[in-house]
Nucleic acid binder design. Structure first.
Length: 477
RNA sequence: GUCCCCAUCGUCUAGCGGUUAGGACACAGCUCUUUCAAGGCUGCGGCACGGGUUCGAUUCCCGUUGGGGACGCCA
């Protein structure tokens, strides 16, 4: 059997869409599983809308996802000769004809047909031109597009997921192959490229099913080998329609910026429309590659479930070791302007271990951990009412200040011992000491184990913050 | 409107003629606990409908309904 060659062919008219990332991933897994090649091709034949910036974003997104390519990126804009040649050949052999219709002319006729309640299909106006008319148009210097003359008959293919899909050619209009500006259209460029790149399996979204017969017609006209087609179900928005910009976040870079881990994101994407038939949910890349199999693809579109993504992400964060996490977190701390020079690297790692138990997003390492690096600016309002403005908080904090001043080590068992002793001696509930302290030290009512976080806040800052809290309480009373 | 695709808990899914229809997320409750998470336990909840085929259909076939996609000189 010959080598498997697959590709992803994003269009640089926007960011890398999660749907594109999804098909990229499946193609990549398929190639890696079977020792094939994964090729990247940039489909930039739409010169009006394609930009270099988007090419960079797409490349960055793929890299972030850890989806590496073996060949490319190829740019369609650099392969015009191939298309030109193929078009010339097709025209010479009578598969194409020149269409001089303008957009407006077509639109006008289209409207009429639709108003009369019929389905529109290009009316072959230019196929039926007389020689005189053609000559007149040429003399006029009218630009023309090249259309494919769709023959009568039936076009069928065997989809790797859906089985046989057939379509009456009557349903297919004479589609444009080369635009009047000389650029090839998608359907044409794809065929030329997939063929010349030796693509054996075309795995793409099922929104391309309707393009496939057109492409097969072109393969046949060009006398080329037709690849295998596998049409993947789409990723759906909450309302089950195709996921789009309007319906939520679709750019891969946005997920990166929101604090998702690439491995978690890939894990989530992999499970959207494919299942390894096990009870497991968390898979390493290697496992995904080993388990990936077209037989276990789903045919129905899958709703992008943000809650599950979040859960998977938190699973990854919790099980990742601190050193690795540090690489992701450090830039975020820098960006937030945190001064972490008071901590040694080892301390920072232990700090990460402490925070990661409760983190769901990488941004949580900033949002719910600022008190390790910065002074407490404000207190949670509900917490103030509950833990500060009562009959015991002030006295307890005063007492704690005193007792904590007397110890030098702020290791968890030492500080905890201070609290336990007070509890023992006074018989009060530990919570009456712990909750006010937490609020004083962090400004929050939730967070890691108090004695563990206290270790990192340290004696000096702990005492200062208790003092500040006492002042706050006095002012509020 | 025409053509095409799809159909198991709210969501992602396992299932490939005989199962108490399994798991995960979410949700609810309990538990653990210095808070919040995490963890543990429990609960809620599903084969769209109607015909066949068969001793027997979630599973196979047909139809209905529902959802989605494509109908560009976008990709």
């Amino acid at each position: 059997m010959s080598e498997i060659r697959v590709r992803i062919a994003p269009s640089p008219t926007g960011y890398l869409h999660v749907g594109t990332a999804h098909t990229a991933l499946y193609n990549w897994l398929f190639a890696r599983k079977n020792g094939g090649k994964f090729i990247l091709r940039i489909e930039d034949t739409d010169v009006e809308r394609s930009t270099k910036e988007m090419v960079d974003v797409i490349l960055d997104s793929l890299k972030w996802l850890g989806i590496d390519w073996d060949e490319g990126p190829y740019y369609q804009s650099e392969r015009f000769n191939l298309y030109k040649e193929a078009a010339k050949k097709l025209e010479k052999e009578g598969f194409l004809y020149r269409c001089y219709c303008t957009k407006e002319e077509i639109e006008e006729r289209k409207q009429k047909v639709i108003e009369s309640g019929k389905a529109w299909k290009y009316d072959r106006h230019c196929l039926n031109l007389t020689e005189e008319q053609k000559a007149a148009y040429e003399r006029e210097g009218r630009p023309y597009a090249l259309r494919f003359k769709v023959p009568e008959g039936m076009t069928a293919f065997n989809d790797g997921l859906h089985g046989e899909i057939r379509r009456d050619n009557k349903e297919i209009e004479d589609f444009v192959v080369v635009r009047s500006n000389g650029y090839p259209t998608y359907n044409f460029a794809v065929v030329v490229d997939d063929s010349s790149m030796g693509i054996t399996h075309v795995m793409r979204g099922e929104d391309h099913i309707s393009n496939t017969p057109k492409q097969i017609l072109l393969y046949k006209a060009l006398n080329l080998k037709v690849p295998e087609f596998i049409h993947l179900p789409l990723i759906l928005a909450e309302d089950k329609s195709k996921l789009s910009k309007r319906k939520g976040t679709v750019a891969v870079t946005d997920y990166r910026d929101m604090g998702y881990l690439p491995d978690a994101f890939v894990n989530f994407l992999a499970l959207l429309g494919w299942s390894p038939s096990t009870d497991k949910e968390i898979f390493s890349r290697e496992e995904l590659i080993n388990l990936f199999d077209i037989k276990h693809l789903s045919k129905r579109g899958a709703v992008f479930d943000h809650k599950k993504l979040l859960w998977i992400n938190s699973e990854y964060i919790r099980s990742m070791d601190a050193e690795k996490l540090y690489d992701y977190v450090k830039p975020l701390w820098d960006k937030a302007g945190f001064d972490y020079s008071v901590f040694s690297h080892e301390d920072l790692l232990r700090l990460i271990d402490l925070i990661k138990e409760r983190a769901r997003l990488l941004t949580d390492f900033v949002d719910s951990a600022s008190y390790f690096f910065k002074d407490v600016e404000e207190y949670d309002e509900k917490g103030v009412n509950k833990h500060f403005l009562n009959e015991y908080a002030e006295d307890n904090l005063k007492l704690l200040y005193e007792k904590l001043s007397e110890i030098d080590s702020f290791e968890p068992d030492v500080t905890e011992n201070v609290y336990r002793k007070i509890v023992e001696e006074t018989g009060m509930k530990a919570g009456k000491l712990i909750h006010p302290t937490r609020l004083a030290l962090t400004g929050k009512t939730v967070g890691p184990s108090l004695f563990h976080l206290m270790e990192f806040v340290g004696k000096e800052r702990t005492l200062a913050r208790i003092e500040k809290a006492l002042e706050f309480i006095r002012n509020r009373k």
